[in-house]
Nucleic acid binder design. Structure first.
Lengths: 142, 142
DNA sequence: TTTATTGCAAATACTTTGCAATACT
DNA sequence: AGTATTGCAAAGTATTTGCAATAAA
């Protein structure tokens, strides 16, 4: 899993630094969660084994990881963006609860169907993992 | 159309100020477009007939208008939010082109169908006018 | 008159950038 | 050795807020 990431870095002449390793590890350990840059930063400094890593480095690294396709970024309406390691078996879209902020993953089959309908109708090609659908989750809706 | 807005303001004990009138007029004249606060601000100062209106007032007014339901806010990934007057015959969702930034309106019937599928599947209730779907418009996709 | 609203400037929140120092390869 | 990367602090962008002045009701 992480080996693939190292491979992708090398392929692009990007260096494997302790910071990048540490961030990758955090992303992997938190897979399934959606972390803010700040969260990653805190986890980095909490880990005694690591020397100080700057928040700017976290942002730079996330941008880089997004670019080489190992992380997906989820921009939120009213708070910081969240990041997650892309698991290649699962390129999901998200349902976001306006009340509690919970992220629910949208069923891939439903998404696929919808994307095709849009493509037919408007010739618009929906990007992968990009849909963010706001509303109320089953516990928060009245 | 705008009378209804005035009515809603009065109903909530909110005052009808020249600034609010001017902003409403701009929104109405630009209906169909999606304006940034900055755009509205520029249009306000361009109109010779109006005295200076602060950008903060534009933001405050948009927040207010959104709250009383006459404006819908569209938060963008990498730029300022855009606002538009809600036309009650048309509560649409949006397709946003990642390349050129163009906003395309999503067909209501397709949206409705999709919302129902999500509700069935996850019990998640999609909010009105809230879907922002990123991808590539017919001219930008390769 | 009373209190909502305004403009301005300062503050905030999140993210990006310049730069000299550091460390991969 | 050569250059990508880092940390830090400063800058940037979009938006919000405090406050005294103004104006709608």
């Amino acid at each position: 899993m992480l080996n693939q990431a190292y491979h992708l870095l090398k392929e692009s002449n990007l260096r494997i630094t302790p910071q990048r390793k540490a961030i990758l590890e955090i992303l992997y350990n938190c897979r399934g969660h959606h972390l803010e840059a700040e969260n990653i930063y805190e986890l980095l400094t909490a880990t005694a084994s690591n020397k100080r890593v700057g928040l700017a480095t976290v942002y730079r690294t996330m941008e880089l990881f997004e670019k080489i396709g190992i992380v997906s970024k989820l921009s939120m309406e009213n708070s910081s963006a969240r990041y997650e390691l892309i698991m290649y078996d699962k390129l999901h879209h998200h349902l976001i609860c306006l009340k509690c902020g919970q992220l629910v993953e949208l069923d891939d089959r439903i998404a696929e169907e919808f994307k095709n309908r849009i493509l037919e109708d408007k010739g618009f090609e929906v990007a992968n993992k990009s849909m963010k659908i706001y509303g109320y989750c089953s516990s928060c809706k009245r």
